[in-house]
Each structure stands twice: as structure tokens, then as C-alpha cells.
Nucleic acid binder design. Structure first.
Length: 189
DNA sequence: GTTTGGATTACT
DNA sequence: GTAATCCAAACA
């Protein structure tokens, strides 16, 4: 399993470190091929900048907890809470390369194409069966639904700016597995 | 109590 | 290009 210490570093290190790891969720799994880092302080695009409820979540929960919220009124987005000496924040899971439980993912998504199962933050939560009920659960201890498995071999990582945001949009805090065809968009990579 | 703004997706 | 859809924050 992934070393929980990764979530006690800082959001950028954790976001980079998750690329190539395998996300296990129930009977399904996928290789993390795209993430973004959000900082709890000084990052206008992060929920913690304008939402007291997000700051409360950081204060009340341990590193490695799931921060799941509904976006645009219809899609659940999944983050991992990072609490480190050099800064707290979140890692947004943006895309996976499907591994196990692909039949289940196809059923949940209503799509056949492997590339279209987890190629976006809203898509992967549907495919993996993650929703608001998983908010606050831990990726590193306790329940058995959510887990990360460490990458089997080193992966080449591409860094770009984050997408889908308007504030602090110039920060190079989006990380992609180089060459992966399972990322959310081809933009910047 | 009412308004506003999204870390998106699927379809035209 | 744009409709779909809802929570938390901000304002009154």
C-alpha cells in the first residue's frame, strides 16, 4: 500500500506522488494518470480560500481523508486531504486508467469506450461509485472501500497549469502521466 | 429569504 | 456552443 506519509508532505508533492499509483475502490481500480494540487493557503482557486466549511474540514480531519463535493449541481469530485509541515491542501483526482472492475465501470457510466470511463474528475467518481457518502472517509486507514497502491515502477510526469478554474489559473499544479491516453484532455499534454 | 457562482459533462 | 442542476457563501 501507499505510504501514508505522502499525505504529510505538501499538496504538490502528494499530487506528483499519486501519479502512477493505483486507486482501489470497492471492486474497481484504476491507475492515477492525472491530478491537481490545491493549497489551503494563498490559493484563490481552492475551496479553503472562500469556504469556511472547507477550512473546517482541514482542521477536523486527518491527512489522507477524502474531501468529496458536488460540483455544478451534478458531479461529485474527489480530493485527498494533505496536511504537512510545509502546507496543507488537497489533491484533486482528475483521471484514471481503468484496471479492475471494468464491467462495473461501464455499467455505472453507460459508456463502452475504455477511454471514456474515468477521463475526467466527474467521470471517475461515477465509474468508481464515489459520492457524498464517502466524504470524510480515509484513504489510508479504517474503511476498506478507498485505498491507494503504490506505483510498481517509476512513471514519467508532465506538469501543466490547472484547468477549469479562473482564479490562480497560472500555477503549474496539474500533473499527468506522460504519454497516457486516459487523461481528461490533451490540453497541455 | 434570495441570489450567485462554480475544480464538469454530454450533446448539438 | 450550451443546457443540465444544487450546495455553500454572500448579501439583504
Amino acid at each position: 500500500m501507499l505510504d501514508a506519509e505522502l499525505f504529510r508532505t505538501d499538496p504538490i508533492t502528494a499530487a506528483r506522488g499519486l501519479i502512477g499509483a493505483e486507486l482501489l475502490c470497492g471492486g474497481c481500480s484504476g491507475i492515477v494518470v492525472e491530478t491537481e494540487a490545491y493549497a489551503a493557503v494563498g490559493d484563490e482557486a481552492a475551496h479553503t480560500f472562500s469556504r469556511p466549511s472547507a477550512r473546517k474540514f482541514v482542521a477536523d480531519n486527518d491527512a489522507g481523508s477524502a474531501y468529496v463535493y458536488l460540483n455544478y449541481g451534478m458531479y461529485w469530485l474527489a480530493n485527498v486531504l494533505v496536511k504537512g509541515k510545509s502546507g496543507d491542501g488537497f489533491v484533486l483526482l482528475r483521471a484514471l486508467e481503468p484496471q479492475r472492475g471494468i464491467a462495473t465501470m461501464r455499467r455505472r457510466r453507460g459508456r463502452k469506450n475504455l477511454h471514456d470511463l474515468c477521463s475526467g474528475p466527474g467521470k471517475l467518481t461515477i465509474a468508481m461509485g464515489i459520492n457524498g457518502g464517502d466524504h470524510g472517509k480515509s484513504f489510508v486507514r479504517g474503511n476498506t472501500k478507498l485505498r491507494f497502491r503504490e506505483a510498481e515502477s517509476p512513471v514519467k510526469i508532465l506538469t501543466t497549469t490547472r484547468i477549469g478554474i479562473t482564479k490562480s489559473a497560472d500555477l503549474p499544479w496539474r500533473f499527468l502521466q506522460k504519454g497516457s491516453i486516459f487523461v481528461s484532455t490533451k490540453k497541455g499534454g
